[in-house]
Amino acid sequence: MGVGFIAGVLGGLLFAHAAYSTIQYRGMLKIMEEEFSGPPTNVVIELLLGFVLCMVAGLAVPGKFHSILPDSEENRVVSLPSNLDFMIFNHRGRLSPFDPELKLKT
């Protein structure tokens, strides 16, 4: 998530810079009374680079895909929850009480 976020921020900054350059380029064209046919090549490169970075961000930030197969390594059922409602207390642990030092301070 960290890498994606940084990539996104960088892409955003590149876009901002490209926008600014294009505005200045247009201003210059207006002075020279020429038609706007497209931003200069370096701006195009900047836009493409920014877009690639944003793509990386867009794919990485929402998190990994989770498997949907029920028997995949992450999804498989390991055990059923132990039935705590029916828990009984007279098991062998009765004979060796746990850690007599432990006390609740009131």
Binding site: E73, E74, N75, R76, V77, V78, S79, L80, P81
Partner: peptide
């Protein structure tokens, strides 16, 4: 149902 990731 306790899944493998949860147990891990």
């Amino acid at each position: 149902m306790v899944g493998a990731t949860e147990e891990a």
